[in-house]
């Protein structure tokens, strides 16, 4: 199992190098000239010589390959350059805002798991009963309502009308409730549906029938066998959606004035703050990769068939 994990980790490196290459290419292909963007952010009217000087400073006059290698070396040291707007190291700016975003995403992840596992499971087990209809309604509702709109609705009812939670800001658990629910809603919709489908599928499997014929208590069959087996696709979905949570946080942070990384990123886009944009894209890529890795490892514990299959291919 150890070798499987190491092998899995090794595959991350080339993927990450490609991710760097893509962001690198994106920035070089985009019509924004970093030197010009820098001068604009510093309120300096660009002249030809100043542009040339800045290009040299940023190493933009070097061959592309050299620039790429330099970028990789710097990024491996967590050096994402200096923000054009604030003149501070990007990593410093980003890392001071990451905790707020992590707090928000973790809270929504917890909400999503706590709500969708029982709901999806029960909906599958009690197909076409009340709870199933409710879960389906929630799935459609959650998947189709835009999160900014849902956020406004929550603020309108629970803050402005009922005065239960503050409208904006950060600090207490009360501040966290509404944004976390807003961010969690699409995930709840997705996971509930996934788990329900998976439970239904598992109920058709022969092992359920065998277990029943062996006289195992129905509750045990459901909890120990069906749920354990059915949860697997949901965990895969979880891994794929951690990155989605982070990107979804951009909108939620703006609506709830949550001082996280997503809002900082939006400002960076408006200011054409290239190093910050690059850092964000790479972090998102990194998050996707790492969360997928973690999910694979968890999967392996839950379902040993996976690592065994891996060994078969060797």
């Amino acid at each position: 199992m150890g070798t499987y994990i190491i092998k899995r980790m090794m595959t991350i490196i080339p993927i990450f190098l490609i991710a760097i290459l893509i962001t690198f290419g994106m920035i070089h292909l985009s019509p924004v000239d970093p030197a010009e963007a820098y001068l604009a952010a510093a309120n300096i009217q660009p002249t030809a010589e100043m542009l040339a000087q800045k290009r040299q400073e940023f190493g933009l006059d070097q061959p592309l390959l050299v620039q790429y290698v330099n970028a990789v070396i710097q990024i491996s040291k967590f050096d994402f350059g200096v923000s054009y707007v604030t003149n501070k190291p990007v990593w410093e700016e980003v890392s001071s805002r990451l905790p707020a975003t992590i707090e928000l995403t973790l809270a929504s992840l917890v909400i999503a798991i706590v709500v969708s596992i029982p709901l999806g499971f029960l909906a599958g087990v009690r197909k076409n009963k009340g709870i199933d209809h409710f879960s389906r309604f929630l799935s459609f509702f959650g998947a189709s309502i835009p999160s900014f709109w849902f956020g406004y609705l929550l603020i309108f009812f629970f803050s402005v009308k009922l005065d239960l939670f503050p409208v904006e800001g950060i600090g207490t658990w009360k501040h966290l409730v509404l944004p976390a629910i807003t961010l969690a809603l699409p995930l709840i919709a997705l996971y509930t549906r996934l788990l329900r489908a998976s439970v239904l599928e598992n109920l058709q499997e022969p092992y359920v029938l065998f277990a029943r014929t062996r006289g195992i208590h129905e509750k045990n069959i459901m909890a120990k066998h069906v749920l354990r087996s059915a949860i697997s696709p949901m965990i895969t979905g979880l891994g794929m959606n951690l990155g989605k949570l982070m990107t979804g946080a951009i909108i939620v942070e703006a609506v709830f004035s949550w001082p996280g990384f997503g809002r900082y990123f939006i400002e960076a886009i408006f200011n054409r703050d290239v190093p910050v944009i690059q850092c964000y894209v790479l972090l998102a890529a990194g998050l996707f990769l790492i969360s997928n890795l973690i999910v694979d490892i968890i999967q392996m514990y839950i379902d040993p068939r996976i690592s065994r299959e891996g060994r078969q291919f060797q």
Binding site: Y152, P166, V167, E168, G169, S257
Partner: peptide, 18 residues
Amino acid sequence: VNVIPDAETRVLAFEKGE
């Protein structure tokens, strides 16, 4: 000075008296 990037949220915060 509260930082509220979103115009709708600003209106809601105002209506609530924040």
